[in-house]
């Protein structure tokens, strides 16, 4: 029984890390700009498709048609030669194998630019409008992004293989001195968990230990006073939007081996991450992380047959149930501040 509980707990941490990462980016935007960003899921999706695109480039092939041979469906046979390997030899092969980690490096500047362009180009004009308008425009942006991706890449999921060395499951039980093959967990999920932890830690360290971070924290707490002290807080918040886009995009890149991405991938997370943010407390970064892990773990345990035998269907409603209970007991969420979205 111990191994069953342990595995479920590990799985909860793994899910929680993914939730926390997305909720963190959403909270960065809400806490700084005060905008409820429904395009956040689309940013996750764009990150995932950065990985798809990088892989497409890395696996480009030259196609020569051999008219003397026919395929079983009656077309001339195509002979394909990988280009990157032809240029770069073994290193090309390594690049293709590690296309997902390579995509991270490329996604950082791309997502930063997308984020800054979105904020400066569109979202900026909605700060003084009601929240409902902000939701409509960001949701509209999400739909546009989805349709653009769909028209380029089609509607079907595009699998992204993980590096060959990182496939399969790690025997965690054996590491902990237990019998082999009792507690095994996919290596990539462990990497995702670590990655999420590092990104979350880096965001917190950035906010806590840099002057830029101090200014942003101050601006989140009292934007007017920061301006009175001569600081152009809007510009810093624009950069924070870019950073939130990077966080969402990287979460998307790293998720592609776990879930073949299609244009819709961000929407699945959007609703969930809003629940996470509300449970954590609107605008609270530690709240978002805490709630992400809490809901991940609860969802994982609620999916066990033993639990479902007691309360059938609990696995499908647990997150919403917890959200309702927490909002009744603590209307501002676990770590919400006064006055956020209350005026």
């Amino acid at each position: 029984m111990f191994e069953v509980i342990f595995l479920q707990f590990l799985n909860g941490l793994d899910k929680g890390a993914a939730y926390a990462l997305i909720a963190l980016g959403l909270t960065l935007v809400f806490g700084t700009l005060g905008v409820v960003n429904f395009a956040h899921g689309a940013l996750f999706m764009l990150g995932a498709f950065t990985a798809v695109t990088v892989r497409l480039f890395l696996t480009m092939e030259t196609v020569t048609i051999d008219p003397t041979q026919l395929s079983p469906w009656g077309q001339p046979l195509e002979v394909r030669e990988p280009l990157v390997q032809a240029w770069l030899g073994d290193f090309g092969g390594v690049l293709v194998n590690y296309s997902v980690p390579v995509s991270i490096l490329i996604a950082i500047p791309i997502m930063l630019l997308i984020g800054i362009a979105l904020e400066r180009g569109i979202i900026k004009h909605f700060y003084k409008r009601p929240h409902a308008d902000q939701i409509l425009v960001t949701f509209g942006l999400a739909i546009v992004a989805q349709e653009v991706i769909k028209s380029i890449y089609g509607p079907n999921p595009i699998p992204q293989p993980m590096p060959t060395d990182l496939r399969g499951a790690a025997d965690i039980g054996a590491w902990l001195g237990m019998q082999a093959n009792i507690i095994t967990y996919p290596i990539w999920r462990l990497i995702y968990f670590l990655f999420a932890g590092i990104v979350i830690g880096a965001v917190f360290a950035f906010l806590q230990f840099t002057t830029f971070g101090m200014v942003v924290r101050a601006g989140m707490a009292d934007r007017e006073t920061v301006s009175i002290l001569g600081i152009n807080i809007d510009r810093r918040f624009t950069i924070m939007f870019g950073l939130a886009a990077v966080v969402a995009g990287l979460a998307g890149v790293m998720y592609t081996p776990l879930l073949p991405p299609n244009y819709h991938i961000g929407m699945d997370f959007l609703v969930l991450s809003f629940v996470v943010v509300v449970v954590g407390g609107m605008g609270s970064l530690p709240g978002a992380v805490l709630a992400g892990f809490l809901l991940g773990i609860l969802q994982s345990f609620a999916s066990m047959n033993q639990v479902k035998a007691i309360i059938p269907g609990i696995d499908q409603i647990i997150i919403y149930l917890v959200a309702v209970v927490i909002l009744l007991v603590r209307p501002r969420g676990l770590m919400g501040r006064r006055g956020v979205m209350e005026s």
Binding site: T211, V215, A221, D222, T225, I228, L229, I231, N232
Partner: peptide, 28 residues
Amino acid sequence: IQLVPEDRRIIPGLTVEENIALAKVAPG
């Protein structure tokens, strides 16, 4: 121009030192 506002507006979450440092972020 420096306004010392009515309710002082000390920034929550920042130490005394950081509140002063904040005033030194912008040029001038």
